[in-house]
Amino acid sequence: MEIINFTPLSATIGGALIGLSAALLLLAKGRIAGISGIAGGIIFPEKGDVVWRVIFIVGLILGGFLYQLLSSDSSEGLFKGVEHIQPVVGTPLLILGGLFVGIGTTIGTGCTSGHGICGLARRSPRSLVATLTFMATGFITVFIVKQLLGA
């Protein structure tokens, strides 16, 4: 297996920022940084509980745009040599994938950020099982796709 474009410094900084944001949300609002739960709270809001959720989701989206803006082969510093993220499928498949993720997070009562980051940090047995299931499913999916596509 060949690892392409692994940048340990930016990965470490990104991971630290995710952990910091999860800790700050827990300290400031007493809430777990599970993205599916945060987004779901916008769709099915509780009284006075929408503004921080919208700000959080907008921040996630703006973070992606900021990364795209700062990353290119000609960038200097932290993002030097990091390529733009290019989807390999069309918009309809991306939307379908997003819907499947939403259905899966509902069935699994949480997402990878809620279970994998926050739940494991809180030593939740349920989150451990969920995270192991996410990982196993990801490994199996990659194996199947590689076999079907010969990639």
Rank of each mutant, 00 (worst) to 15 (best):
S21F: 12
I13T: 09
G41E: 09
G104A: 05
L24S: 09
S113G: 06
P92S: 04
A136Q: 08
F6H: 12
G102P: 00
S10K: 10
K47C: 01
A23S: 11
I57F: 06
G138M: 14
G59Y: 08
L148Q: 07
A11S: 08
E83Q: 14
I117C: 08
L26M: 10
L149E: 01
T133H: 08
G30H: 10
T137D: 02
T133D: 05
E2I: 04
L25I: 14
P45N: 11
V129L: 15
V142D: 00
C111T: 01
D49T: 10
T133I: 14
S21L: 12
G59H: 03
D73I: 07
I117R: 00
L66A: 15
L128W: 13
G114M: 10
G81F: 12
P45A: 10
A22R: 03
G116L: 10
T105M: 13
E2N: 09
S75N: 08
L96N: 00
T131C: 09
G138R: 00
S36F: 00
L128V: 15
F143Q: 07
I42P: 06
G97I: 02
L70P: 05
M1W: 07
G138F: 13
T131S: 15
I38F: 01
V89H: 06
I55K: 13
V51N: 10
L17C: 12
V54P: 06
S71W: 09
K47I: 07
G90Y: 07
G59L: 03
W52T: 02
V129D: 04
L148S: 03
R126E: 13
G77R: 12
Q86P: 01
